[in-house]
Write a protein that binds this DNA or RNA. Structure first.
Lengths: 212, 212
DNA sequence: GAGAATTAGCGCAAATCTGCGCGAATCTCC
DNA sequence: GGAGATTCGCGCAGATTTGCGCTAATTCTC
């Protein structure tokens, strides 16, 4: 039995918006550019989304929408912004909570249902989806600015500085000075004691994340 | 007439949460510490808040709640985060969109209804209000890190580097090296051509915000 | 096996940033 | 008017960061 206010009304007696989630799923293909996962909607490419169900957190709804619409599992969404223009959706009063969900390529199990679009080459998208992508890219870049692989996007738990550097360059969308990068990141890494094998050139040390 | 889906249902036929706004109103009293505006609730100090009304944006709701509960006008809220735990409010299913609203002291017209609490001395607060304050403080500090007076908190449109420095130190909650600060901020300021008068010591140049 | 190509690690010099302290410019008091 | 206190602006030297290029260590090719 829901509590009632001074006028005998429960919360559900008042007008309330529907709450949707829309997610910019960002990934870095091996050797490729930072890309966003798009799904096909009404003849266009758009971000996966859904409505929040009773008893769910927003992250639960994001997870459900990604499993259902894109076959993506194991995500850890980050809230970006609430889009709240009262007239943004012609079906009625809808708020959309925009999210970022960074994923490894290996988490994209069902590639037939999704399209990988480089964020630098975004096609027209409905609603405020282009803006959501921009917010997501900015957030991903901000988090990569100071810390090594903050979302665990590298394919393996151990990696070389070069591999880390390449990931961060793909995220940034431009070259990063290698020495400055190494000096910033290395103190935040733990050497495994092993060297990379089978690569051309001097074998590089391997690391995992962690450290001072 | 609201649009209907494949099952003949309108959006309002589905369960929907109530959406609330809670606001950390932050200000810097002259010569004082960074402080948050609290209002009296059920025998405690809490942040001002309200429910989103139909046809409103979240910022509209923030503005309404601050006028009604704290007599504060002219605010420009910044969204921080959506608190979405399904059981966070015993009245029913409520999402709360937390906001930051920086204000000048002069905007606090009705001081009888509000309490100014230094953010470093926060009392126990209900719900997630302490966390909202922490998020707001972090956001305010992040925005002050690189740009001069980003929210226009200084009492006057023209100011000296010293005045700006003092504001930024109050926001940061600790001393900031004066030369590094001046070298970072000054290129972002436009000199008015005037010097401060009536102060002890060499008269300082006055500036407004703007510039490369 | 030898040589070429490629890459990693890092010391060093150049570039940039930071803090200090000095002279300049005011206000206050005697 | 002068002395003392205070503050501002900034040049300079010390501290820190950055980029270069060298040697070391591998793979690839003939």
């Amino acid at each position: 039995m829901a509590k009632r206010d001074s006028q005998g009304k429960a919360l559900s007696d008042y007008p309330r918006p529907s709450v949707a989630v829309d997610t910019a799923v960002l990934t870095v293909p091996a050797g490729g550019p930072l890309s966003v996962v798009a799904v096909t909607g009404d003849g266009d490419l758009r971000l996966p989304g859904t409505f929040l169900h009773e008893g769910e957190t927003l992250a639960d709804a994001v997870g459900r929408s990604l499993v259902e619409k894109a076959g993506i599992t194991g995500i850890h969404p980050v809230q970006l912004h609430v889009f709240d223009a009262p007239d943004r959706d012609d079906r009625g009063w809808v708020l959309s909570v925009a999210h970022l969900a960074p994923v490894r390529m290996s988490q994209l199990a069902d590639r037939a249902r999704t399209e990988l679009v480089p964020v630098a080459e975004l096609p027209p998208m409905p609603f405020d989806h282009a803006e959501i992508v921009a917010l997501a890219v900015a957030e991903l870049r901000a988090r990569h600015a100071e810390h090594p692989d903050p979302f665990g996007l590298l394919p393996e738990p151990t990696f070389t500085i070069r591999e880390l550097h390449e990931l961060h360059e793909a995220v940034a969308g431009h070259a990063l000075p290698r020495d400055t990068f190494r000096r910033l990141m290395e103190p935040q890494l733990v050497p495994t004691g092993s060297l990379a094998r089978g690569t051309v050139g001097k074998p590089a040390r391997e690391f995992i994340r962690g450290g001072a």
